[in-house]
Design a protein around this nucleic acid. Structure first.
Length: 668
RNA sequence: GGUGAUGUAGCUCAGAUGGUUAGAGCGGCGGACUCAUAACCCGCAGGUCGGUGGUUCAAUUCCACCCAUCACCA
C-alpha cells in the first residue's frame, strides 16, 4: 500500500432508544461498518463510535407509560441494540449513551462557549401546553383538524392530506395526544442559537467537505431559503440535561444528540492509549472525522452540527455521508404486509451475512433509496455468494483434501490469471473508499465468474482419472483456491464472518488487503466445510409471517372489546380517605389530594376543582387506582388516580364506598 | 403546496457530456457437463430507455409540461 496510515474517526447516527432496530436502521450501520472494516483492513487507524440517543419527550413519555424511569428504559433498549448490532457484525470500537457524564460535560462546554461569543439569546415563544399533564407539547403530540383542508386527525405541524404546514395552535379542535385534553397556548422563554450568522462559514465548510452532489443541492436550497435561528431549549418536564443557571429548562435533544459522537469517543479515549481526544476534535490536526447519516437528518448534520462545532472551538467534520431510505418489495415498510422487519426477527430466521452482502450489492454513495426485494434477495445471495463465490472453493477443496492431503501446489499454473484478480485490487479499493459498494461487488462477482470458467475449462474431474495429470489437478485447484482467497479478502469488510471461516479453512492467521495479491502456495490447508448455505424461500416466508404476528399482538389488542379477568386484576383499586385537599396554584381545574391508604399516604392531583370545594372533601372515602405509574406534572408528582364519573367541569361525581370500608381495602 | 431526487428488459441495476444493432447479473427457454451446497459452462429470447410536446440532420440522452414513487420544508 502506498498510502500513509490515516487516522479516521467514523460515526453512525445514534439510534433513538425507544424502539427496536429494524431493516431500515441496518442500511446505515452496515454501510458504515463495511467502510470501517475496509479502512482497518487497509492498515489505517480507523475508529468507529456510536451511542444510544437517550433524551427527549418520546422517551420520557414512553417510560411514564411503562412505569419505569427513562434511564431504565433506555438502558434496556440499549442492551437490545448492542445485542442486535453484535449479531449483525457491526463492530463498534465504542458504544455509549447520550445520557452520560461525558456528554453532559461537552454539551455544557459547547453551550457556554457559544454563549460567551454571543451566539445564544433568549426569546419568549408561545406553545401548546397540556394542562392535565403539566407539560408543553411538541408539534407531533398535538392532533386535530387541518385548518386548510379540514382533514381530521392531523399532526400539529403539517397536514398529510394537503401538505400545508402550520403550528399546533392553528388546528381546529386540537387534542393533546398525551392526555386527550384540549391544549392551551402558553408562553415561555426559550434559548436560541444564532444559526443565521453562520451562513458564510457553512458555505465554506460545504466546499471543503466534498459532499455528495445531492447533499450540496439540498444545502443550496436551504441557504437560498435563509438560515433561521435554532431553538435549543425545552421546558420541564423533559428528559435531558438541565441548562446551567436555569431551574426548569433543558437542552433540546437535538443539541446533545450529535455531541454523543465526541462524547462516545471521549469515553473510549479513557481506555485507549493510542487515541487522543483533542487530536480528533480540536482544529489543526491531521485526522479525519466522518458521519454516516440518513438523508432525513441532513439539516442537523450539515447545518446545525458544523455551526455549533465551529462556534465552540471544535473541529468540523471532514465530511457527512448521507444515504437513502429502505423500501421492502418496492414499498415503504408496512406492518400489515409483514415488511416492517425487525433486526431480531431477521436474525431468528436468516444469516446476517446474506443481508450484509445484499445491501453492499445495492449501496452507492448517493441519497437514493434502496429496495430490499425479498425474491431478488434470495436469488442474488444464492447465485452470487453460494453459487459463484463459495462454489469456487467447494469444487477445488475436494481434490486438494482427498488426493493431496490438503497440500497446495508450489506454484500457480496461470500467474497471469491470478494477476488479473490482484490487479483489480486498487479499483475495488477505490470503490470501497468512495462507498460505491455495488460497483465493487459487481467487479468481484465478475472475477468469480472468471474463476469458475477457468475451472470449467481445465476440467480437473477429467484429469484426475489420469495418473500422469495429477500434478496438474493440484495446480489447477491451487489456482482456483487462490482466486477464491483473493476475492474473499476483498469481501472481508462485507461478510467478515464468512471471510473468517474461509481464512481458517486456508489455515492462515490473519489477512490484510495486500495479502490478496500474494498467492498462498505449498502449504497445507484444512478440511473444507460449507461456508454458507443457501437461503430457503421458507425462511423468508417465516420472517414475514413473524413480522405480521408481532403486529397482531400490538394492534388488535386495543380493538378488542373485552379484557380478561387477569387484565382487570392488574388494576389495584383501593379505598382511600382524603386527609387533605387543597387548590393548586396556577391550575384552575386541579386539586391536590393527600390520600390515606391505611399503611401509606400519597399525593394525587385530581381534576375535580370545578365540582368540589376542598374543605367538603376532607374525611371522605374515595376509590383510587393505587398501582398507576407515578406521573411527573408541573406541580409535582401524582401517585395515583381518583375515580370519578361524568364529562368534567362541574359535572364530576366521585365514587365512594358504602359505610364500613376502611382505607387500604382492595376493591375486587 | 414549494423544493430536491428517482422512473432503462419479468426482477435488481449499469450506461450514453445527442449519432451505427441500449448493456450486466438474476429469472425464462435450449444445450453441455457431472468436480461442486441442482452449483458451474455454452447459447437464445426479451426493452418504442415513465408519458406528451419542443429544440436538432439526429434524443432514451438537452428543454418544457404532465404522471408515478421517495425525501425535506428548519
Amino acid at each position: 500500500m502506498l498510502e500513509e496510515p490515516r487516522k479516521i474517526l467514523v460515526t453512525s447516527a445514534l439510534p433513538y432508544a425507544s424502539g427496536s432496530l429494524h431493516m431500515g436502521h441496518l442500511v446505515e450501520y452496515l454501510q458504515t461498518d463495511i467502510w470501517v472494516r475496509f479502512q482497518k483492513l487497509r492498515g489505517h487507524l480507523c475508529t468507529y463510535v456510536c451511542a444510544s440517543d437517550a433524551h427527549g419527550t418520546p422517551i420520557m413519555l414512553k417510560a411514564l407509560e411503562l412505569g419505569i424511569s427513562p434511564e431504565e428504559l433506555t438502558s434496556e433498549i440499549s442492551a437490545e441494540f448492542v445485542r442486535d448490532f453484535a449479531a449483525f457484525g457491526v463492530d463498534f470500537d465504542n458504544y455509549h449513551t447520550t445520557h452520560s457524564p461525558e456528554n453532559e460535560a461537552l454539551t455544557v462546554e459547547i453551550f457556554e462557549a457559544l454563549r460567551k461569543r454571543g451566539d445564544i439569546y433568549t426569546r419568549t415563544i408561545e406553545q401548546a401546553f397540556d394542562e392535565r399533564e403539566g407539560m408543553f407539547l411538541p408539534d407531533r403530540y398535538v392532533r386535530g383538524t387541518c385548518p386548510y383542508c379540514k382533514t381530521e386527525d392531523q399532526y400539529g405541524d403539517a397536514c398529510e392530506n394537503c401538505h400545508k404546514t402550520y403550528t399546533p395552535t392553528d388546528l381546529i379542535d386540537p387534542i393533546s395526544v398525551v392526555s386527550g385534553t384540549t391544549p392551551v397556548k402558553r408562553k415561555s422563554e426559550h434559548y436560541f442559537f444564532k444559526l443565521s450568522e453562520y451562513g458564510d462559514r457553512l458555505r465554506a465548510w460545504m466546499q471543503e467537505a466534498t459532499l455528495d452532489k445531492n447533499v450540496v443541492a439540498k444545502l443550496e436550497e436551504w441557504f437560498e431559503a435563509g438560515l433561521q435561528d435554532w431553538d435549543i431549549s425545552r421546558e420541564a418536564p423533559y428528559f435531558g440535561f438541565r441548562i446551567p443557571g436555569t431551574e426548569d429548562k433543558y437542552f433540546y435533544v437535538w443539541l446533545d444528540a450529535p455531541v454523543g459522537y465526541p462524547a462516545s469517543f471521549m469515553h473510549l479515549c479513557e481506555r485507549r492509549d493510542d487515541l487522543d481526544f483533542d487530536e480528533y476534535w480540536r482544529p489543526g490536526h491531521d485526522t479525519e472525522v466522518y458521519h454516516f447519516i440518513g438523508k432525513d437528518i441532513m439539516y442537523f448534520h450539515t447545518l446545525f452540527w458544523p455551526a455549533v462545532l465551529a462556534g465552540s472551538g471544535f473541529r468540523t467534520p471532514t465530511s457527512v455521508f448521507a444515504h437513502g431510505f429502505l423500501t421492502v418489495n418496492g414499498k415503504k415498510m408496512s406492518k400489515s404486509r409483514g415488511t416492517f422487519i425487525k433486526a431480531r426477527t431477521y436474525l431468528d430466521n436468516l444469516n446476517p451475512s446474506y443481508l450484509r452482502y445484499y445491501y453492499a450489492a445495492k449501496l452507492g454513495p448517493t441519497i437514493e433509496d434502496i429496495d430490499l426485494n425479498l425474491d431478488d434477495f434470495t436469488a442474488r445471495v444464492n447465485s452470487d455468494l453460494v453459487g459463484k463465490l463459495v462454489n469456487i472453493a467447494s469444487r477445488c477443496a475436494g481434490f486438494i483434501g482427498k488426493r493431496f492431503d490438503g497440500k497446495l501446489a508450489e506454484a500457480l499454473p496461470e500467474p497471469a490469471l491470478f494477476a488479473e484478480i490482484a490487479e483489480a485490487s486498487e479499483t475495488i479499493a477505490e470503490h470501497f473508499e468512495r462507498r460505491e459498494y455495488s460497483k465493487a461487488m459487481r467487479i468481484i462477482m465478475s472475477l468469480a465468474d472468471t474463476a469458475n470458467r477457468y475451472i470449467d475449462d481445465k476440467k480437473p474431474w477429467v484429469m484426475i482419472k489420469n495418473e500422469d495429470q495429477l500434478d496438474e489437478v493440484q495446480a489447477v485447484c491451487t489456482q482456483g483456491l487462490n482466486m477464491f482467497r483473493s476475492l474473499m479478502i476483498y469481501l472481508a469488510p462485507v461478510i467478515p464472518a464468512v471471510a473468517e471461516d474461509a481464512r481458517a479453512f486456508l489455515n492462515e492467521d490473519s489477512w490484510s488487503w495486500p495479502c490478496a495479491a500474494i498467492p498462498l502456495l505449498g502449504v497445507t490447508i484444512n478440511k473444507f466445510t460449507p461456508l454458507l448455505t443457501r437461503v430457503e424461500a421458507k425462511q423468508v416466508e417465516n420472517m414475514i409471517e413473524q413480522s405480521k404476528e408481532s403486529l397482531a399482538e400490538h394492534e388488535t389488542a386495543p380493538e378488542d372489546d373485552y379484557i380478561s379477568i387477569d387484565d382487570f386484576a392488574k388494576v389495584d383499586l383501593r379505598v382511600a380517605r382524603i386527609d387533605k385537599a387543597e387548590a393548586v396554584e396556577g391550575a384552575d381545574k386541579l386539586l391536590a389530594l393527600t390520600l390515606n391508604l391505611g399503611d401509606s399516604t400519597r399525593q394525587v392531583f385530581a381534576g375535580i376543582k370545578g365540582a368540589y370545594q376542598s374543605e367538603t372533601l376532607v374525611g371522605r372515602h374515595v376509590i383510587v387506582v393505587a398501582n398507576l405509574a407515578p406521573r411527573k406534572m408541573r406541580f409535582g408528582v401524582s401517585e395515583g388516580m381518583v375515580l370519578a364519573a361524568g364529562p368534567g367541569g362541574k359535572d364530576i361525581f366521585l365514587l365512594a364506598p358504602d359505610d364500613g370500608a376502611e382505607p387500604g381495602m382492595r376493591v375486587k
